[in-house]
Design a binder for these strands. Structure first.
Lengths: 130, 130
DNA sequence: TGTAGTAGATTACATATGTAATCAATCTGG
DNA sequence: CCAGATTGATTACATATGTAATCTACTACA
């Protein structure tokens, strides 16, 4: 087994998440391609996107390989690990780590459509049958 | 009806949440009392706590009334409103606004004990009977 | 009544973040 | 072969954040 050095998850900022999402959805991508994808949703200057890419590489949340004179970027941390990490810190910060509180809040705050409720019940069924 | 000016929720930082939680749990409190409560969990200098209090007052997340030569602090924004706001931005940033994804993740990532699952089912039952 | 504690106000300071602009090397079309 | 476009690299700069220390005014004890 390779030694898992359990590097602390890089702390990804709000804006940076946008960029990560793009690359988790599709990668590798050149900076220009990321800029395109981002443009669909955010009104950022291409410079800004480049900055994000640079910072994410520094944080080792992204990696790249040289392709001719440009870079091909790809995630260096898994989306699921980041989701786990972000969920955990959000949960502890806002809901004192009480998952049930969060769930109750979601259900309660009308965050869930009837459909969502059905899906959720299904998920729970499955989990029980597990 | 008083005119609801819908001020944009003040953006509460990670560290500031700690202080808000204390005051949502019990208020009003003097700075010294907040320092005490915080000391239970965090190893912050009393100065640091004072800074948080000051910033939260600026952001109008806290209000105070003078009591002799000291202040009595109390929340100026409701916990539930902040939970709503924080949940919303977390959800959209991390889970692209897909509540079901978040739920699936929570259930899935073993965040839920069997007990939690029961509670959740109960919550759902209640919601349906609503 | 003078002096040491407190309380709040002001200032400090490094790092993070949002949001770019400028620079140097390279590629590309004429 | 050269000028403009394009790339990544470096620099910029205001605001936010974490983490305090210093300053000033008032209070309470000796």
């Amino acid at each position: 087994m390779p030694k898992k050095s359990h590097e602390p998850m890089p702390k990804i900022s709000d804006a940076e998440w946008q960029v990560m999402q793009v690359l988790w959805d599709e990668s590798p991508l050149t900076a220009a391609q990321v800029v395109e994808r981002i443009a669909q949703e955010q009104d950022w200057s291409p410079r800004t996107v480049k900055t994000m890419l640079g910072r994410l590489v520094q944080k080792e949340a992204l990696a790249f390989t040289q392709e001719g004179n440009r870079y091909l970027y790809r995630p260096a941390v898994s989306r699921s690990a980041c989701l786990r990490d972000a969920s955990k810190s959000f949960l502890s910060r806002v809901f004192s780590g009480d998952t049930r509180l969060l769930l109750a809040h979601l259900v309660d705050a009308g965050k869930l459509s009837d459909d969502d409720v059905q899906t959720l019940k299904q998920i729970l069924q499955d989990k029980e049958r597990k």
